[in-house]
Nucleic acid binder design. Structure first.
Lengths: 236, 236
DNA sequence: TCCACTAAATGAATGCCATTCATTTATAGC
DNA sequence: GCTATAAATGAATGGCATTCATTTAGTGGA
């Protein structure tokens, strides 16, 4: 297991390989002297690809091209594309802000955590089906987050047996809300059916008249505050 | 547009087509006298397929085989596989119980609605990314559900401009909770990392000791009651 | 020091998938 | 009756994740 760092990115092969100026095939078959791939590099390349082309653009072939390897080379490091998604997931989880649990009121800590959690995954909704059923063992940083949050809940006085249900309830709300962020602005436009759904149409219009920049934020805030209040009431 | 009902299912072609006893090719090219496909039949076949083989088994080819047509025939009725998912989604939405909004306390109506909504989609989580961003115009029964629910919220005294955010918040929670139902029982087993996450591990054990049949129900109940209380407090 | 094993790359399949298109046949509207 | 359209077949098409045989390089033990 070489200690070589190989995740820097897509440096052009400059010195060796003087052939084919068009940038065609570069590496001959067989194990290279320095490892080309590692998990950190694969993760970063996947994130770049997602950022540029979205999740539709995240294919094993495209990932391989970004990393300048053959697609099959990836399978020396991950078992499947699902593994790549888990790598990305665990990376994103480190962007979730748990700092509030170190000090200050529990309510503020939950707010900071929940908003940053939702924002981290709003641009990565295809990961939600992955996270939602992912054994925590497979994602060390995710597990770390749970440790900090559950300790924060315990310190705030949430009864031991309610800590996990409370976190799960909040997470469920966060996952669903992440989808909501990505919904089209006119998702509730009932179009030519408006006549047959007057009650709903009126409610949609009433919200629209408030001219919120992001309607999803109104719903998220409403639900989050309700959950914080309800869970906070469990404290002994 | 023929009024022919053709959705009964997979009757064996008995009278005509006396050829190939192995059950090979059955229908010659060209438009058949009676329509073979319609949207109701496609929807039912998709539901059958999902029930038997899960969403992995729902392919256009498998769907065509179930309906005894060529795959390309489906495209005379739907534009894409996404359309098939929308058909299934709108059908499932009719299983959601909104009857409580007709009479009785608002809280009970929301409870009935939310539990049935979660249960309807727990076995259909691959539809959640579809629903969550689906314009309501594309799903008439879904729109109908919104009409009943929003009217119930208005009658209960929820301020007009909070009706949609309240429904969205509840739905977000329901979608996330539907995933939670499908999570493996040992999802929170921290395995060999348990030593480094004592707080979380203790919280998981404490819940496990309560021996709930479905831990997901504990979290769902906790979150739902908090949301009902918080939203109910908006009533004027 | 040599040798066997393993790790890490290539490149050529493989099989599945959604979708498209040309073609054929039947029906419906004018 | 003619024509446009609807609804089927069957044969592509291109993309996808994944596998496998092969090649080369490093590593650990005798």
């Amino acid at each position: 297991m070489p200690a070589v760092r190989a995740s820097a990115g897509k440096e052009k092969a400059t010195t060796d390989d003087g052939g084919t100026p068009g940038g065609a095939k570069r590496r001959r078959a067989g194990r290279p002297s320095a490892a080309v791939l590692d998990l950190a590099g694969i993760t970063q390349a996947a994130l770049d690809l997602i950022g540029n082309k979205g999740y539709d653009g995240l294919t094993m072939a495209a990932l391989a091209r970004t990393l300048d390897v053959a697609p099959s080379a990836l399978y020396n490091h991950v078992e499947s594309k699902h593994d790549v998604l888990v790598l990305v997931e665990d990376h994103l989880m480190s962007l979730v802000d748990v700092s509030g649990f170190e000090s200050g009121p529990w309510e503020d800590a939950v707010r900071t955590w929940a908003w940053s959690y939702r924002d981290a995954f709003a641009a990565h909704t295809p990961l939600i089906p992955v996270i939602a059923v992912l054994p925590v063992t497979d994602a060390p940083r995710t597990l770390l987050m749970y440790e900090v949050v559950s300790t924060g809940f315990r310190d705030a006085g949430i009864p031991e047996a309610r800590i996990v249900p409370a976190i799960v309830a909040l997470e469920s709300f966060i996952f669903g809300s992440a989808y909501d962020v990505t919904a089209p602005a006119d998702i509730f436009d009932s179009g030519n059916m408006a006549g047959s759904t007057p009650g709903f149409t009126a409610a949609v219009r009433s919200l629209a008249e408030e001219q919120h920049e992001r309607p999803a934020d109104v719903a998220f805030s409403l639900g989050l505050e309700a959950l914080i209040a309800g869970i906070g009431a469990l404290r002994g």
